[in-house]
Design a protein around this nucleic acid. Sequence first.
DNA 1: AGCGCATTACGTACGGCGTACGTAACTACG
DNA 2: CGTAGTTACGTACGCCGTACGTAATGCGCT
Lengths: 237, 237
Amino acid sequence: MVGRGDEPEVIWARPERTGRGPKPAYRRGDIAAAAVRLADAGGLDAVSMRHVAAELGCGTMSLYNYVPRKEDLYELMVDAVSGEHELWEPTGDWRADMLRVGHQTRALMRRHPWLPRLMSGIYGFSPNALRYLEHCLACLDPLEVSRGTKMELVAMLNAVVTMYVANELAVAERTRSLPWSEERETAVRIAYLGSQVATGAYPRLAATFAEGAGPVDLEAVFERALGRVLDAFTPRG
Amino acid sequence: MVGRGDEPEVIWARPERTGRGPKPAYRRGDIAAAAVRLADAGGLDAVSMRHVAAELGCGTMSLYNYVPRKEDLYELMVDAVSGEHELWEPTGDWRADMLRVGHQTRALMRRHPWLPRLMSGIYGFSPNALRYLEHCLACLDPLEVSRGTKMELVAMLNAVVTMYVANELAVAERTRSLPWSEERETAVRIAYLGSQVATGAYPRLAATFAEGAGPVDLEAVFERALGRVLDAFTPRG
DNA sequence: AGCGCATTACGTACGGCGTACGTAACTACG
DNA sequence: CGTAGTTACGTACGCCGTACGTAATGCGCT
């Protein structure tokens, strides 16, 4: 028996198929796809070993032949959706290319709202993550900074996108498991915020909220954030 | 009976004490402190309603008189450690002040390694969070940009700090619940990464890793990241 | 060809979790 | 002073991850 969780192991290093024994009934991709389907439909909490097994149509414990620990299932999921990144031929305009990367990552995370939560806890060198990283570096070829700096750029871009989307989705994901609506939850929180600001204890905060009374244009905020990150890495001439 | 989780509610809006009935035996602060103690010692997974109740010395279900849902316990925890932020009189040098804020947040998160995980999932307008935000805005008084832009600066600074610390701590937090050491886990993952890079499928990645063979200076990387975020918000003259 | 054994399949079971519910003791307000 | 609203908390339900044991399977060896 090989690696039932008693040895440190990267799941990607474990062969999908070893010589002996009956043929495995599923591929890693099948399992990842099933888990992603469940998470998309019912949130990350809907991804349990039992549910995934049921979705596949096998017994719960059979899953452990493919995935030694639940955490590895998460890694499979992250890799699977990372494969949805479109990788194009770099245009030569690194700024435009990286903007496109940022927007695409955001779209990916909105399609799979559970992704930000997993991204911040996973070490992340799955095959598709490596492909994605290589693609970013290719887009950055025209940028004249050190290789290390390019990595830092990609890291910061991902950090900003991830946290912005996470905040955007926080309420929606929270209310998913609660018996009342997202609007009601938001209203209650805004009301509390208003009451606190109205005490006068936070004058600058009060001024800010008074100024921007209308709803915030999330799209514009995100766009500005991306632009600023890229500016921060543009060599000043 | 008031708000046992059947109504949307911000825990901060609920009075700690209502008129009727026996005196509550604990204050919110006691509960938060107990939970933080457990999380610091045993990771976020050590924070269960049962454990916190035991730490306080009361029955499990008594906790629910103070905290309608577990999520609210998390909010209490985040607020409690947010109170550890040192708030000083702004110096007039907004850049220096914000650098200090960034370093302090990082220190806070290293003291409480479970914090990044909670930060990315919580809406976050607790009393201490408001105080912290107001303080940041005060530090930014000398910066001549719109109020909205200042908020965006604070948001991005927090995003970057949170994700950087989260990555820094990812392996450590992961191995906490596993039977082998952090070093062993890291070694295995690095080995896999090396094997993949060696296939030649990722030339730019390979070059990057060949170049920076030595261990990365996390301190310097973090410092540069902070600097770049602040640069991105400095009006160009 | 046929034996051996690593592997797959999966039922059962254990200890933990969040929390719904019911009951008893208690105290401020009408 | 009664009574209504609160606190305290034991019990119980339905989940969870997963250790373990057993039966079936089919590759690689002699």
